[in-house]
Structures are given as structure tokens and as C-alpha cells.
Amino acid sequence: MPEIEGVENTGGVIKKFLYLNSKAPYGTVYALEVLEMILISAAFEQDVHVAFVDDGVYQIKRGHDTKGIEMKSFLPTYRALEGYDIEKLYVEKESMEERGLRAEDFIVPVTVTNRLAMSHLIASMDVVLGG
């Protein structure tokens, strides 16, 4: 990983970061640029959590075919997150079920969490970022 400005300036502090993905994977740039934030935070050795709610659950659904829209599929990047020790992934149960999805439809292992538990998870974080 290239050298990142500021990475030496954390004083050993480890905070709980949550990346909250609520937007569909394509159509807007949010999903892609949240993923870029997640990758950078790995270099800071923070306690990283990633959650998927609303249409955000589609971001990790198997089988994105982006050829027709000439955009890069970022599924391979999600699959690689494990290599950066980012393994705390959560999908909101209600969002998943409302869209007819099951945990097996995702390309990475996730913890399925109901809406109430998700609100507790968000409340327990130090920094919540997303789009």
C-alpha cells in the first residue's frame, strides 16, 4: 500500500469506524467512494465495521454485470476486503427481506442484523461515515 499522509499521526488511538452503505451500487458514485474510504481506513489500523441498509444491500449481491453501463464492478474489491482484515460486515435483515434477498445472495460472509440491533450498532460507534 502506498504511503498515506496522516497515518503516523494517530497516536495509537483505535476508534470504531462504521461505514454505512445505503445507496444502490450504481446510479450514483456513493457506493464506490465509500469503498475507497473503507480501503484507506484499513491502513490506519482502526476497528472497521461496514453495514448495508436500504438499497445498499445490493452493493454486495452476487452477479453484478456492469458492461452495459461501462462502469467497473466493485464486487472483486469487496471480495478482497478480508485481506485487509475488514471482516465485520452487517446487512440489515428488513432491508434484505424487503428486496427478496437472502444471506446466500451476498458475495461475502455477512452478519444479518435486525433494524433495532442495527440502530444499537450505529449508536455504539465512534465515527459513522457513509453515503
Binding site: I4, E5, G6, V7, N9, T10, V13, K15, F17, K23, Y30, E36, M37, I40, S41, A43, F44, Q46, D126, V127, V128, L129, G130, G131
Partner: peptide, 20 residues
């Protein structure tokens, strides 16, 4: 770089986000 955002999250008591 984006690292400056992560660092701000670590160094600040509150990180406040505006916009989606």
C-alpha cells in the same frame, strides 16, 4: 489524500457529516 479524513475522525471528538 483520504487519509486526512480518517485522521480527522481519529483526532476529533465528533466528526460531523453534511450531505448524503
Amino acid at each position: 489524500g483520504l487519509g486526512q479524513l480518517i485522521e480527522a475522525g481519529i483526532q476529533s471528538d465528533r466528526l460531523v457529516m453534511f450531505g448524503d
